[in-house]
Computed example of a mutant assay.
Amino acid sequence: MKRIAIIGECMIELNGAPFGAMQQTYGGDSLNTAVYLARTAGDAVNIDYITAMGTDALSEGMVARWQQEGLNTEQVLRDPQRQPGLYLIQLDEQGERTFLYWRNQSAARHMMQHPQFDAVAEHLASCELVYLSGISLAILPAEDRRRLLSLLKTLSEQGVVIAFDSNYRPALWHDLEETRAAYGEILSFTDLALVTFDDEQAIWGDEVPEAALSRLYRQGVKKAVIKLGAEGCLYGEAASGQAELVGTTPVSHVVDTTSAGDAFNAGFLAGYLAEKPAAVCCRQGHQLAGIVIQHKGAIIPASATADVNFTTTRIA
């Protein structure tokens, strides 16, 4: 069994129309990936979710549900002074979403300041892979972000694989210069980048996916996946300089694109950790994302993914 850690924030999710029908659940890009990876990789991967939560009833309920999903929550820090953040998803008729957030005082935003974080940092050194996203970095105060980047660089030097999704939310950053500085630093020691082309365009101004791939190589990334939505993804490795476009099967009825990229990352990582060929990893990501976007919410019912087990199912 491979042990990995996923760093980030999980929030209370409200999904629906303001002052209308609304569903309460939970989600967050890194947590979404952790859950979908746990569902589809089975016993092949031990997943530590790294975050901070409160001691309130909502925090207790969320952590209990993560455990039911198969996540290891021993490294979840508990902050009696703070609670989880909250976000509202509003959907249009085409299934596209807009977000409103309330997270400035969330426990996760202050996880680096927790008196027990040093023990978590020591634990990360025992993991084979550490995964995080741009949101994982963006929510942290600037000094805490620098500390985390320094820790991740040290882990990389010790042989821990660093996987990074650039998942860009402009509202979480002071300006584009701050974003580029943080992303440039983490990309310099990233083994596997799982990025979305729209984000790369917004941050770096890349005109085509191939240009984004070349830039990632120059920044230090060893392997990269550039997600292209319905067009599939572009996979490449710096060592060979070669790239492969891996298509996806169109989904005729899209309900909600929330966490499509997170689900793709989970499917890809399930294959990557099992040392499957890159094209197979990409197709696993496409398959899982295709299922998720046919349901509402960031984390769809477990029954919808019950038949997807990438440790036993072969995808040619």
Rank of each mutant, 00 (worst) to 15 (best):
S30G: 03
F264E: 10
K222A: 12
L151K: 02
N104R: 12
Q158I: 10
G61P: 04
G28W: 02
I89H: 01
Q242P: 04
L155V: 09
A289W: 08
N46K: 11
L288P: 03
G8T: 14
A34K: 05
V35Y: 05
L124R: 03
E178M: 13
I135L: 09
L140D: 03
A266D: 01
D144R: 02
T258I: 07
G28E: 15
Q284S: 02
G297H: 04
A260K: 00
E210S: 12
Y131W: 14
M112S: 06
V161P: 00
D144M: 02
T51Q: 02
M22H: 10
S259L: 14
P18V: 15
T190W: 03
I299C: 00
G61W: 07
A266K: 05
S59Y: 02
S240G: 09
G205W: 13
T249Q: 13
D118V: 09
A34F: 00
T190Y: 03
T249F: 04
D191L: 06
A5T: 05
R146T: 10
L234S: 11
N265M: 07
L187W: 11
V160C: 08
A119T: 04
L187V: 01
F19E: 09
G54R: 00
R215S: 11
I6D: 01
P115W: 12
I89W: 05
V45I: 10
G95W: 07
A230Q: 10
V161H: 10
A298R: 01
V130H: 08
E122M: 15
D56G: 02
L148Q: 00
P250D: 12
C282K: 01
V195D: 06
L155D: 08
D191C: 08
R109D: 05
I7N: 06
A270L: 03
K2T: 09
A274Y: 11
A34P: 08
V292I: 14
E237Q: 08
L269Q: 04
L86C: 12
T154H: 08
L228A: 13
T40R: 01
A107W: 00
D48R: 06
Q67M: 07
E200Y: 09
R314A: 06
D48V: 03
D43K: 14
F99T: 12
N167T: 14
L273C: 00
